[in-house]
């Protein structure tokens, strides 16, 4: 009885000991040296695996940073704090990165802008933009069919009730996915610190803009004249803010006759002019 039990236990135990010893020896002898920094960098990264850096997930980016293929600030989602952590692991000083946020450059919702036709088809802005530049009267505006919403890994952009995509500033990590996905190029990354934005993307002349949208930039240049810091410029009938010069004084937004320049006036700070 005892023998019947003992024999298999001993033989199997002996075999497993032998194999175990062989495996552990082999693992020592054929060990592939892995840079311990890869794991450390991997730990420092956010772990969202969003792929915004262009590498397959955070593991891929960690390996790329350690091998020197990617800069330490490659993770836009983590921003400066992550770059600093990665920099300390890699022994490199991290530059201070400006935190960015995505912003939809269109306010032409169903109350403000007209459509040129009724679109019936799949809910995809790419599909709609293949048909005469989309259903919207303005050929530069947000089509509101949610292509950006579906690519966002952070649930930070949503099409609102009135058919315009809106970014949730708190959730947005500036991963750039919506910017790439938008067939209208109506999403842009701007510095988080900026409180003022030109929320129009139309390059048409003022007269044409007025015909299809109440809140479009009509190219009147009042903002250029009003800006005390010379931060406004015009390019293709569209106002543009130089964020290096802008001090968030909101004068342009106050003066804009169509409210195409957006600013949050609840937080207005008095500026010496």
């Amino acid at each position: 009885m005892l023998q019947q039990l003992l024999l298999p236990v001993l033989s199997l135990g002996g075999l497993s000991f032998l194999f175990g010893a062989g495996l552990s020896l082999a693992s020592k002898k054929f060990e592939v040296a892995k840079d311990s920094r890869i794991d450390a960098v991997r730990e420092a990264l956010p772990g969202a695996n969003c792929g915004a850096c262009g590498y397959p997930g955070c593991d891929g980016l960690a390996a790329a940073i350690v091998e020197g293929r990617a800069p330490i600030s490659a993770c836009t989602v983590g921003g400066s704090p992550v770059a600093a952590k990665v920099g300390s692991i890699m022994g490199v000083e991290a530059e201070v990165m400006q935190k960015m946020v995505a912003r939809v450059l269109c306010q032409g919702d169903c109350d403000q802008a007209i459509d040129k036709y009724r679109y019936r088809g799949i809910a995809n802005c790419v599909a709609a933009s293949m048909l005469a530049d989309g259903q919207k009267g303005c050929s530069y505006g947000c089509l509101g069919l949610g292509t950006c919403e579906r690519v966002c890994p952070f649930d930070a952009i949503h099409v609102n009730q009135k058919g315009i995509a809106v970014v949730d500033k708190e959730k947005c990590t500036a991963c750039n996915k919506c910017v790439v996905a938008c067939p209208k190029n109506v999403i842009e990354l701007i510095p988080t610190s900026s409180e003022v934005q030109v929320t129009c993307n139309s390059r048409d002349k003022g007269k044409d803009v007025k015909a299809y949208c109440k809140v479009g930039c009509i190219g009147c240049r009042i903002c250029v004249k009003a800006c005390p810091f010379d931060a406004m410029s015009f390019n293709h009938n569209l106002a543009k803010i130089d964020y290096e010069k802008c001090t968030n004084c909101r004068v342009c937004a106050e003066k804009c006759p169509t409210h195409a320049i957006y600013a949050d006036f609840s937080e207005k700070i008095e500026q010496p002019v």
């Binding site: 088809g121 799949i122 995809n124 790419v126 599909a127 293949m130």
Partner: peptide, 13 residues
């Protein structure tokens, strides 16, 4: 089903 339209989008992408 919007078969052709979705295939057109795929081709474009």
């Amino acid at each position: 089903r919007p078969l052709l339209q979705s295939i057109l989008v795929a081709k474009k992408e």
